[in-house]
Design a protein around this nucleic acid. Sequence first.
RNA 1: GCCGGGGUCCCCUAACCUGGUAUGGGGCAGGCCUUGAGAGCCUGUGGCCGUAAUCGGCCUUGUGGGUUCGAAUCCCACCCCCGGCGCCA
Length: 418
Amino acid sequence: MLRIIKDRLEEYRESLKKRHSDFPLDHLLVLDENRRKLISEINNLRHEKNLIEEDIAKKMKTGNKEIDREKLKELDTKINNAEKELSKIEDEINQLQLRMPNFVDPSVPEGTDESYNQVVRTWGDAGKVGPDHIEIGTKLDLIDLERAAKTSGARFYYLKKDLVRLNYALISYALDFGMKKGYTLLQPPYMLRRAILESAVDISAFEEAIYKIENEDLYLLTTAEHAILGYHYNEILDEKSLPLKYIGISPCFRKEAGAHGRDTKGIFRVHVFEKVEQFIFSKPEDSWKYHEELIKNAEEFFQSLGIPYRVVNVCAGELGAPAAKKYDLEVWLPGQNKYREAVSCSNTLEWQAVRAKIRYKKGNETLYVHTLNSTLVATERALIAIMENNYLPDGRIQIPKPLVNYMNGQEYIEPQKL
RNA sequence: GCCGGGGUCCCCUAACCUGGUAUGGGGCAGGCCUUGAGAGCCUGUGGCCGUAAUCGGCCUUGUGGGUUCGAAUCCCACCCCCGGCGCCA
């Protein structure tokens, strides 16, 4: 990544500025300079030592066992010292590089918070106002938050009865939807090693978002995205196999440590939810095309459910470090009387691929792929949208057409009979 | 968890016992040859540093340490894979 940035330094400075990032680029460049000097020094010393060793090897063959131990000792000391200094510098560089944000695409709007996000398009009749999913869920006995608080604490939930079935119907429908689009289904491991996660996310995400397994080098998945990226970790892909398109399904475990006080009620922001995720490994020249494909897929999916939404182009200050551009699809929630994020669709260019060492052969060259990810559906949020948008005056919830088959023909969730 | 076998460059593989700087094949790319294709032959095939380039150097045998002038090779720890035993939804 550092190399790529050095080739496009001014462009990168612009990106940092646009992000309002405090990343210490100049310090990193100085460190890199020192690093290269030291490496040259060490190479020369090692070369000297190798020559002596070769000479010894030759002499041994003729029975001559003279060894200039003093000269070797001296070289060893010098090499050792230089190496210590180098590893100190490299540690610092590595630390910094893990925090280094991606370039920002020119089409991304300026801005520091979500009010600067640009609405790209809207679909459906937004504006309906009504009871929120907690009220509906309680009335129809579909969600139990109090007992979840007893067993597990805040931001947990029990789904009940038809809502459980509707959740699995959404998942099944989404998997079939992706499969029909030619994506390969993947159910990943729900725990990942640190090295895999470091290649997928900004390091600061660890404390804020990721649950760690005690005494093991394992972390609970926050999204299938990371596991799909890891699927091809340290691989050289066949050019002809690109693009590789995947649909993953997994639970997502999130600490939500930085979200105190936000969306504290209901199942909107929770510690565990299910998500069907799209992921593409592509050639660099194709990645923007697939970025549009991913958001279009998500839109088509929500259109088929009849949920009103809008797509926004997320402003530079709100982009995560990995993304060069990000669309959010925000669904209309009558219970909140606003649009809320349900899908996030990012192009990370080579940011993740460099860290995960995922390349492909183009003739004689070995190039990094581009990686893209997008939610297809995070089912708990989609359940909220369905409950609130499809809540009928008579107290029933109408099940969206495409899900009826997955519900064995059931068209409504009925109110409790007393 | 225990016992045994293993991890070598994009893939396969030799060298490991007995330490001397990684062998051969496949694939891929380029070239020669050919009307074309194929076959055959030659060259190249990871990372880093310096150089305008040519080129030169260093590193790379799962990871990290140790022994040694020198480690793929010997020693220690850990990770992963395969087989057997145990446990298990």
